[in-house]
Each structure stands twice: as structure tokens, then as C-alpha cells.
Design a protein around this nucleic acid. Structure first.
Lengths: 210, 210
DNA sequence: ATGTCAATTGACAGTGGCTATCATTTCACC
DNA sequence: GGTGAAATGATAGCCACTGTCAATTGACAT
């Protein structure tokens, strides 16, 4: 059984077999979901359809993703970023820590194909249910990032504001990039957001000593 | 049949009977919904329960609100604001037009009781489904406000940015106000947002002549 | 290798949000 | 009042999602 159908980065080579199979199934499910989205509207794509395509039971799909929207929103990028950010905070100010985390985690961003990130961005922009789900997604992310900062001694207000601003900056940059008319590329969009994040460092450190 | 169970403002005295009954039913349904929310979690409140309490069929509830979340999010305030904003734009710059609209529409804000606005703000903050739905709610509102400006000759980019900023300012102010610890009152929170909106006027007119 | 135990899986049944449809009722207008 | 159009409520059905339980799988020790 070829587990690496979706060419992924597999730094999970040493993970137990069970978890490797889960990740593979998740990736298959997401790939199937987006492939279905090319020819059918969001509402017409049932969990059963996705489960069948990924060769797992609907039960497992719900265990993996929790909601239908999460299948489309899920990636390993966010987790990767949070982990790196938390680590970087030990030696860098938050802005720099975030930049390093974002760029370092880039390999985790390949979803199921080269144009996948753009496809997803457009899907999210077009489907109200996905936009709504993403709002909560961002909230969780903001909480994770904020917690990491609090753990490293930053005040609560500064942490959540910083995290919110970072997420907002990247979301805004990606929204502009995703727009059909725009001809800019992903790295340019991310660079613009990064420029923003750099300024945040100064704002944060202003009210923080250690 | 006493239609004015929920003491509302009834400037709809001249509306046809059908629509008056609809509004009354909507208000009843919302009142029932929030009353149920005092003793039960959001997920435990079924449409059937609300429908029974409001003495209408579940079918009508769906016709009135479309979704369960909308029952909690619905008010006549937004519509009122949009209408007034559109009118004010004929004679005032957008910032002033918005301020007048927001304050002028205040009477439409009484939902089903005096503490209702606060109750709702806390409910939205606490229930993820409501937060997600509100995000889409805001999008529609932004679109309405932006369209009104475009109709009055403002450029598209300025309009949607302005509308987005206004909504963001009020949402932020209300979020701070809603927080359990805060002791500030609603008018103070709205004033803070209004202060913000005033500055937006300058930003908008900078790139606009007529 | 093989047995054991814990964790994962898939099948099943059920709840509730939401849609579509259609006969019945209600109201607006004449 | 009578008439036509619109609102209502009842019914049936789809699908996302949850809980449960027996069967399966893989991790680990012998």
C-alpha cells in the first residue's frame, strides 16, 4: 500500500505507524475534498463522498477533522508555526521569532498540489461557511500564539494584541493575493505582511523589559 | 391577541397587518430564544422549542431568520442604520453621516428588554457558532454600507475600507464593553468608537473631491 | 514469532438544522 | 363580502454531527 500518494515532506518518518497512517488518510481526504470542489459546489460535497474517496469510514473523517469545514481549512502549517514560534521566543523578540517561524514552516504548507494554497484561498473567499469557520480557526491560532508569549513572560494584553495583528496582517496580505485580478505572487504577499510584523516588534518591546 | 408583548417602538404603525404580525412574531421568537439561553446551552435550544414558545411553526421561524444563529443576531438596528446612512450621505461626509445614523437609529436597538444588548454581546462572545455567524453578518453589513457610498459617488476601495473600519471600530468597542470586568457603559463605548469614526472622515475625503 | 492489552476503527442508530413541497389559511384589494 | 395572491403549517427527506459498541489493529513484552 503506497502511503505517500500525496507527495508530502514526511519529517514524521519516526512517528508510530498508526499516526503516519492517520496523517496520510487526512491528506488523502483533503485532496479528495478539493478535487470534488472543482466540479461541485460546497454543499453538494458530502462527508460520505469524501470518506469513500479517501478509503476510510465517515466516522474516521469526523474523528480526524471534527467538522466538514475543517477538512478544507486543515493544514500542518499552523501547528508548525506555533511550535517554531514558541521555540524561537527563547532567543528572539516576538516579531523576529514569528518571521523565522513563518518562513521555517513553509515546507509544511504544501497541501496536496502546487496550486493548492491558491485554490484553498479562493474557496475560503467564495464559501461563506468556510469564511465563518476560518474566523474561529484564527481565534484558536491567536490564542496559541498569545499563550506562547505569555509563557515567555510577556503581558497578556500585549501578547494577544500582537498575535491578533500578525494574523490580521497575513490574512489581509493573502486576501489581496488571492483576488482573481491580482498578479502578485505568494512570496511577495507574505513579504508585505512580514514588513508589517517587523514594525510590531518595536510596538511590543516598548512596553516590555525582560 | 396582544401583539405588543415585547414593548417595541412601533414606528411601523402604518405597515400592513401581515408585516406587523411578522415583526411581532420575530420579536417573540428572539425573546424566547434569549430566555431559553439563560438556563440552557446554545446547542440544547432547538428551533422547535423556540417555535413553540413564539407560537409559530418551525417553518415560519426558518422563513423569518434562515438560520438558528440569525435568531440571536437579528435586529432592526442594522437596517435602520443603513437606511439613515444612505440618506445622510446626500448632505454629509461619510463619517458624520455614520455618526448621525448610529445615534439616530438607537431606538431600534431595544431587543426584548433593557439588558438585552449586553446579554446578546456576551452570548456572541461565548458561543463559537454565533461568533462565526456574526463574521458573515458583518460582511453583509459592510457591503450595504459600501454600496451606499458607491451610489453617492465614492470610489469602491475607499467605500469598503471605510465601512470595514467603522464596523471594526464599533465591534472592538462593544467587545471591550461586554467583557465581564469592564465597568464602562454602552454610551461611553459607542463614544470611543465614534471618536474613531470622526478621524476616518478625514482619511476618506483626502482622496475624494465630490 | 506470538500473545496480550490498549487504542483505533467502522457500523449503527439517533438528533437536529435546514430545504422543498403542497394544501390550507389569511389578508389585501376591489 | 368575494376573489386572487401571499403567508402559513404540515409533511417528508437530506445531511452534518454525536454516542456507543463490537471488531480490528498495532505497540510492546516475553
Amino acid at each position: 500500500m503506497d502511503v505517500s500518494t500525496t507527495g508530502a515532506h514526511e519529517p514524521d518518518q519516526r512517528l508510530p505507524l498508526v499516526q503516519r497512517k492517520q496523517r496520510a488518510a487526512q491528506r488523502r481526504a483533503q485532496a479528495v475534498a478539493f478535487r470534488l470542489l472543482e466540479t461541485a459546489p460546497f454543499d453538494a460535497i458530502t462527508i460520505e463522498l469524501i470518506a469513500a474517496g479517501a478509503e476510510v469510514s465517515p466516522s474516521s473523517i469526523y474523528r480526524y477533522f471534527g467538522t466538514k469545514e475543517a477538512i478544507f481549512l486543515w493544514d500542518e502549517y499552523d501547528d508548525d508555526v506555533v511550535g517554531r514560534f514558541r521555540q524561537n521566543l527563547a532567543t528572539s523578540p516576538p516579531g523576529q521569532a514569528m518571521l523565522d517561524a513563518v518562513t521555517g514552516a513553509m515546507p509544511s504548507l504544501d497541501l496536496y498540489g502546487s496550486t493548492a494554497v491558491l485554490t484553498r484561498a479562493r474557496a475560503v473567499a467564495a464559501v461563506p461557511q468556510l469564511r465563518a469557520a476560518r474566523a474561529n480557526h484564527h481565534e484558536r491560532l491567536r490564542h496559541s500564539l498569545g499563550s506562547a508569549m505569555v509563557e515567555h513572560g510577556w503581558p497578556d494584553a500585549v501578547s494577544s494584541t500582537f498575535a491578533g495583528a500578525v494574523i490580521g496582517a497575513f490574512t489581509g496580505a493573502l486576501a489581496a493575493w488571492e483576488r482573481p485580478g491580482s498578479d502578485s505572487d505568494l512570496t511577495a504577499a507574505l513579504a508585505r505582511a512580514a514588513e508589517f510584523v517587523k514594525h510590531l516588534d518595536r510596538a511590543a518591546t516598548q512596553r516590555h523589559s525582560g
